[in-house]
Design a protein around this nucleic acid. Sequence first.
DNA 1: CTCCCGATAT
DNA 2: ATATCAGGAG
Length: 204
Amino acid sequence: MVEEIIKRLEKVFPDKLELNFSTPFELVVAVVLSAQERDAKVNEVTKELFKKFNTPQQFANASLEEIEKEISSISFYRKKAEYIKKISQILVEKYEGEVPKSIEELEKLPGIGRKSANMILYNAFGINEGIAVDRHVLRVSQRLGLTKQQKPEKAEQELMKLVPKDQWGKFSNLLILLGRYICTAQKPKHSECPLYDLCPSREL
DNA sequence: CTCCCGATAT
DNA sequence: ATATCAGGAG
């Protein structure tokens, strides 16, 4: 079931995020900005933002106001500006400016929770330590009958048993795209769905 | 469980 | 005008 899902989705979607970034640190910033926000909007903002600042050192030295100004069209921009500056300071002070490569270390950073940590690990470093379960992954997994859990963390535990470990990151990336474009929250586009025949929720 | 917060689709 | 989008901290 899961293997078939991945096989079909791979033909239609790429195994990558739609967030634009050129370094692990840029991905960290983009992921923080992407909470409760559309990737397209984040990309608009980071395109300009990264011209001004794109290293932890630069963000750590920038004032909160400068950062806020650049990202003010993003949801929760004050909090996010604060998180980005704080993260940058921590990276400079404790990690020699590098993004840490473990879930535990990433989750300690302000504004980075379990979902973001998983996304960064896989998409920046190719590490499969967990499955990033966002709203899309949760909804699509439920509709496919892979889990009945309502909590992202509980759903992740169940999904990790169903999906081979070396496919965790890919699985998440693919489900996000399916959820974003086809298996949408409202009016899912059944006629365009590559998984229609094996979906228990096809009449939804 | 509440707060953080803006843009776009309807 | 209002619903919808789609995480994390306290």
